[in-house]
Design a protein around this nucleic acid. Sequence first.
DNA 1: TGCAATTTTGCGTCAACTGTAAGTTTGCGC
DNA 2: GCGCAAACTTACAGTTGACGCAAAATTGCA
Lengths: 205, 205
Amino acid sequence: MAVDEVGLRERKKERTRQTLADVAAELFDRQGFQDTTIKQIADAADVSPRTVSAYFPCKEELVFCDHGDMFDQLEQRLDDRPAGTKTVETLRAWLMEMLETVDVDLEQSRRTRELIESDPALRTYERGLQERAEQMVARAVAVDLGVSSDELVPHMVGAATIAALDAMGRRAKDPDAGDFQATALPVIDDAMTFIGAGVQALADR
Amino acid sequence: MAVDEVGLRERKKERTRQTLADVAAELFDRQGFQDTTIKQIADAADVSPRTVSAYFPCKEELVFCDHGDMFDQLEQRLDDRPAGTKTVETLRAWLMEMLETVDVDLEQSRRTRELIESDPALRTYERGLQERAEQMVARAVAVDLGVSSDELVPHMVGAATIAALDAMGRRAKDPDAGDFQATALPVIDDAMTFIGAGVQALADR
DNA sequence: TGCAATTTTGCGTCAACTGTAAGTTTGCGC
DNA sequence: GCGCAAACTTACAGTTGACGCAAAATTGCA
């Protein structure tokens, strides 16, 4: 079997997964997250409720199934960076990549964001996912600075990075300008400036 | 009826609430959060399961019932501060207060923290609560700076404040020094330095 | 003591999630 | 093509948390 594992079976599985996520998004949009049951999603996708649970460990994952990739990419960037690369540069590059990813289907991103902000439970779940990213960043920064990842600074940088990502998300929602990238790019610069100044101030101490 | 509402009834209610939280803490400690059922808590406290639900809207609240106060105090400080007071000073004062609050029963705080970190669901729930605080801080900072509370900087400050609170919590857990306040105080100073430098850097821009 | 207000409880319901075992489909070697 | 083993789907039953409702128990006060 090839390493790629793209047999007919795998492809069908992937299609089912996508169908479920799509159907769920549609229903969530129309009726809200809480008022949509797993059974409704199953019916709409023409599978059994048990199958939905087999694909997605919880209802929230139907919304966030792609978000894991985002953080996987961050992890990879942090792991792969050549020794000596400042973590902050890696963060900037990652945020830029996220910017483009969002821009690929801006409408989709907007809808998802609207949905998340319409339901506290979803927002909370999102925060939980972001925790993982914060940890990763904190660990990397801790290595850079040669301190424990329990220290304040690494987590400040981590939290600030997530705050930047969130701010970009809000920009995507609010279309005050046509070009999303143009309006969101300064956010990244500002975030990096903020972080850089904070780290520097504590290093000088 | 007095404004205070401290009739016999109220007192008993408060006692029941406390008993439930105590009994729950004990069980959570012994068996873990997930493996403890509402029914067990009810039995241990000698009330019906329905009563537990009447007092606490969800199982997590049995752990976090006090945490709401923390954020209420922040809200009050932010509301009450005299015009012209820098938000950052309010934050510092609040964090100092939290420091003392934790120190009042350090053992208790440690146990609670250990419990929270032992269960991802609890950690996620905590993040959800913290979101409220971040919003409050962001709004206050936005007013200070005369920008929208959707902007990056207000949320950077909010996120950094929460990160500082978290870092203090970790210090409470790890007793490398005897005096908790002495080891946690620098965390507050550092956090304020970090935030101040970040804000300044973007203001100078 | 007796009554009105409040609290507690029992009961039914719903929805998410899980384990299990029985069906169904699929891919692949022959 | 055929058949079989592996993988996938499904039905079923059970657990748990949470909620609405109305009956019952308790409580405070006149």
